[in-house]
Design a binder for these strands. Structure first.
Length: 121
RNA sequence: UUGGGGCCUGGUCGUUGCUCCGAGUUCUUUGAUCCCAAGGCGCGGGUAACGCCGCGCCCGAUAACCUCGGAGAGGAAAGUCCGGACACCAUAGGGCAGGAUGCUGCGCCAGCUGCAAGGCGAGCGCAGGCACCGCGUUUCAAGGCGCGGCGACGGAGAGUGUCACAGAGAAUAUACCGCCCCGCGGGCAACCGCGGGGUAAGGGUGAAAAGGUGGGGUAAGAGCCCACCGCGCCAACGGCGACGUUGGCGGCAGGAAAAACCCCGUCUGGUGCAAGGCAAAAUAGGCGGCUGGGCGGCCCGUCCGAUAGCCGCGGGUAUGCCGCACCCUGCCGGCGCCCGGCGCAAGCCGGGCGACGGCGCGGCAGGCCCAUCGCAAGGUGGGCCUGAGAGAAAUGACGACCGAAGCGCCGCAAGGCGUGGAACAGAAUCCGGCUUACCGGCCCCAAAGCU
RNA sequence: UGCCCGAUGGUGUAAUGGUAGCACAAACGACUCUGACUCGUUUUGUCUAGGUUCGACUCCUAGUCGGGCAG
């Protein structure tokens, strides 16, 4: 399953919308924010994601890059669990690089099951 | 084993992703009308000038999806400590201020400058000079010689300032104790006390006490005198030079610190890719751009300086400013929009959108050479070299095998088995240097030990 | 990415190159029946490592940490 460039959150406005209007789920090694865009405006849109890894919580550049790569890979392989038209924001902590990859996947899928389904069913 | 130098930064394979590029496939318009080609050259014409006009030639674009193919982090990519390229602004020249730098010779180095010779250059290397430190040797000692180490190594006979505390005295040196002489008094005497004077050899203080050692000399002492050494000046000689050697003169003028101010020599505009430039479409307004001429003032820039030491130069007068918002003349045009405040208006002031776009930006590329077409710009073909190019920021995830250090067990040892699973660290305009971080491996040189 | 600053007890701040002070805080004691106020005493420091100097918070070099500016 691909992870396309237009699935990246890039604009500061998009990030602000997720942080101000979205729901927050604590997943231990990272924090997942979820925000459903208006389905009438963008019908059947692919889910988008933004990844944040700060120097204070994760570490130097090598650790930050590695944390963002692993979280992006988790999202790429399991994005079918995310409802269409959703914007996700993954905020990494230092534990992202310490956990084994299957444990990271398990945390992500568990969080996705708590996400609300779109109303059209 | 130790020291120095250089090189490399786990390997192979599979599945599946990411970024960029090429090829294929599909659609449309051509190079000013949402974005995605605001092309180039030659000739002619025109203008104050231009992106102007005409003709001709050359060159050229094409998204997304999908398929195939190719490429994809470092020695430090880091720190941002230096130098440069590049870009913009400024710039006649000279000087001042500021900054950097500092033994000599030669070589190298990203590059810069010059017609050339040559010069500059962050730094690096080699050889040498001098100073200091350690060891050895020699000497009574100072010192000399040899070996090794080390040095941000111009000037403290240009000037200003500083040298706390301690100590009698700290840069025009100094008399506390002590030593010596004289006078007076006491005492049989040794000597003691008081007063006057001489003295820098000794003690003590200090980081540092104003040449050192030895001898002479003296009441005691002192470069007071002598020898050697040190220091300063002069001369000769040697050396490309730093500097050295020798001789003469001077009885000594001389302390430390310039990583205090400073002086001398040399170099030196400012800013920093968030530089900079592009993104044009009528409410036909002096709205925008460009440009010529002119008056007085004012203002700004030029690191400072024009209100000046001197000669200025450039610009603004919409964006920063006076005379009521300089004036006059002209050319071209496709020249974005919104909000708020002041104001009759002209206009002025403040803020925002466009604008988290795209270029700069690195192989749809560049350099060199050859052939060929063309007046030229350029095109085509061949050879060699260079080989990441994102933009909330790519180089990953998983699996299999091999696997270094370390740890455990076995073995006299060589080694074997098991466990373990790889340091520091992620390009952001580019290049050169420096510094810092760091697991291990390979190679070379030197020394010592063992075989 | 580029540029520019700073670092002194727990906190805020002083110190021509010459003994590191001050205020608040903290601890202890006194005053009080107790607490507060007040008074007294004490503890705690020059970001790190080298260098220059007789001597470094100060000067120089390298690093660490923190902050600011430029869209």
């Amino acid at each position: 399953m691909r992870f396309r460039p237009e699935q990246h959150l890039r604009r500061p406005g998009d990030f602000r919308a997720v942080r101000e209007s979205g729901r927050r789920l604590d997943c231990g090694a990272f924090t997942l924010w979820h925000f459903s865009r208006d389905p009438a405006a963008v019908p059947a849109a692919l889910p988008r994601v933004g990844v944040v890894a700060s120097i204070a919580s994760v570490g130097a550049a090598v650790q930050r890059n590695r944390a963002k790569r692993r979280l992006r890979e988790v999202f790429r392989q399991h994005q079918d669990l995310v409802p269409a038209g959703s914007d996700l924001l993954l905020v990494a902590r230092a534990a992202v690089n310490r956990l084994a990859y299957p444990a990271l996947v398990q945390k992500f899928t568990a969080a996705c099951r708590q996400l609300p389904r779109p109303p059209h069913a």
